[in-house]
Design a protein around this nucleic acid. Sequence first.
DNA 1: AATGCGTGGGC
DNA 2: TGCCCAAGCAT
Length: 315
Amino acid sequence: MLQQTQVDTVIPYYNRWLESCPDLQCVAEKNIQEILTLWEGLGYYSRCRNFYSAVKEVVKNHGGNVPSEWKQFRALPGVGDYTAAAVMSIAFHKPLPAIDGNVYRVMARVLGIKHLTPYNKNRIKNRLEKWIDTDHPGDFNQALMDIGARICRPNKANCIGCPLSDFCKASALGTPNQYPTRKKKKPIPHIKVVAGLVWFKDTFLILQRPNTAMLGGLWEFPSGKITSASHPSKELQSIMKNEIGLTVTIGEEIGSVHHVYSHFSMTFSVFHCFIEHKESLQSHGPFRWIKPSEIPCYPFPKANHKIFDLLEFSK
DNA sequence: AATGCGTGGGC
DNA sequence: TGCCCAAGCAT
């Protein structure tokens, strides 16, 4: 949960998770849909799918016990060098430095490293392997991460009161914020998407996204990119026909929301749509006709919830 | 090595 | 408001 996600954001999800699913056996007994619903809203859903796979693997191959050896734990899906070192040091007291984005920044400043090249990252690792408190490796790692998160901030290094300032090169130079250099991000493209809330009686249609795609395993309304300059409702009608073979009547526009993903942004316009009879639809994947009251049973992306909010389908 | 992958908070 | 950034990992 903590990968690329702030602690304060994770805490409520973590608590909710433990309340409904307190141990690995419990995770293994649930299906992926229930697990994704626990994760819903946290983002980076491959973390959730990987965790689920890892739990299955631990139950099947390790007798339900989390491996206490680096090599076996590191091999689990979704576990990289950082996560492996964090768990090994905190849970099993192994003297391995857990190097996250905070620690790279703090150490770059302490050592006066401008560029986080692979060579310099390796220097940081070697230095921490010497410095780590072998009696309390977990505390050492967490302390260093906390210094990064609370004191040695990316654009706001508060050297006054920092326990490392006496031997920090970047602080001595007076320009700690300039360490390490950061590359500017490329601008992300913007797309226009139109979607339909397709009603049949008191149910509407949802489709499940493929596991390997972005937002994999989550559910959504049938939708498509707006490509031409024609009227959105005309475009929506042809999307419905071409993608799932439904001939729909376009109704009122529910609304339009803006949503920013990590690598693109979109305006998401959703219209009520209606069908007279339950036609057979040619779906590429799983689909359901659900009532608004069933929304909490399925994981939906944030953009879809923004539409639910407009409809006051409160969850 | 560079890119894809969500969402929310801070300023 | 529009960026930057967050207890990274997989490919």
